[in-house]
Design a protein around this nucleic acid. Sequence first.
DNA 1: TAGATTGTTAATCGATTAACAATC
DNA 2: TAGATTGTTAATCGATTAACAATC
Lengths: 209, 209
Amino acid sequence: MGGRKVPDVVVRRLPLYLRVLEELDVEETPIISSHELGEQSGVTPGQLRKDLSFFGVFGKQGVGYNTLYLREELRRILRLNQQVNVGLVGVGNLGMALIHYHKPKEDPNGIGLRLVAAFDIDPQKIGKRISDVPIYSVEKLPEVIRQLNISIIILAVPAEVTEDIFRRCIESGVRAFLNFAPGKLSAPGHVRVHATDVTLELESLAYYR
Amino acid sequence: MGGRKVPDVVVRRLPLYLRVLEELDVEETPIISSHELGEQSGVTPGQLRKDLSFFGVFGKQGVGYNTLYLREELRRILRLNQQVNVGLVGVGNLGMALIHYHKPKEDPNGIGLRLVAAFDIDPQKIGKRISDVPIYSVEKLPEVIRQLNISIIILAVPAEVTEDIFRRCIESGVRAFLNFAPGKLSAPGHVRVHATDVTLELESLAYYR
DNA sequence: TAGATTGTTAATCGATTAACAATC
DNA sequence: TAGATTGTTAATCGATTAACAATC
């Protein structure tokens, strides 16, 4: 377990399972079957079990999965059982939306994703705080990334400057990015980029409309 | 051609090819090979040719693809060779970002995606225009969808109301959606939903960081 | 014990890649 | 014609689904 490489499609489904488990009332549903958890996550029971099997054994035959236990195990697998510091570059409309969208985690232990810093070039914005998130100068990227131990960067800057900022973040040791600018970022092998490209989404939708 | 059903992965790559072709200078590159177009799109030459073969024959053996012709054919296949009217529900920060992001298409013929209407419940916003896009009351959704012939709706509203607005749009005949709210929308078979779920993206990134 | 449900293996399905005949 | 590159078929790869022995 943990040894073989896990397919990316599998990793991407784990947060889905975790979300369903987190929405569940543990008092009400202390145990859940692959049938029910699969149903609520939109996958087949078999696929759910197969996915989990990449990481170990979490259920009891004839019984099901302990809701609380599986939840914690998924957090551990996703490395969300610790504080994961996220930085946001670009405090335009999109950046603002992301800051407001981010609920500083209702979790009591302060565990999981945490937006700890935003970056912009606008002197009007630098030094301010929005929803408790401090805004730094983009110049301070390397410094702040290290000081605050930021491991994920969200890129919400204009397309023209994305590549440059991307490069600078990599140099500061960041290996995980969520990019909202159109176009592919060329990344070294150990760097992971998840992207959201609105134009591509809309254009493929046009086919189906 | 056109008969068999085309895999979704293929449809989703077409806008990528189209983008590369649109960025190309036709004077400079009147003809392009599958090798070069594939390279620039991030796919193998074989995959590019396979993808295109679902829709017909577009190249010349021993030569390559006519840049201008393939561009137009891809637009036709994606149904972007006509004005495609898009509506946006929710003019918060995200909605604003999307409005500003949308360049009303530098295309001379006014062809392709066009954001023609936004909707909100805030009386302060209703009746105004942002970047030329008029803001209507959400109450007017059915009416405006029909009048402006809107075929794609972007959902940028809070999670709690997304399902409801989604339903109302479907009732008004919309069959293609881009959803930014977290959570799965349950849609009838003929309705297509592409989704961007920031939390899921970040949580799966945590695994790779 | 009988019933239920997991974990896992084998079968199926679908997508990608390799290879090459067709042909410009 | 010789060289190049397409369109397409066959081989491979990977992911999903079906099925069932293990076992709670």
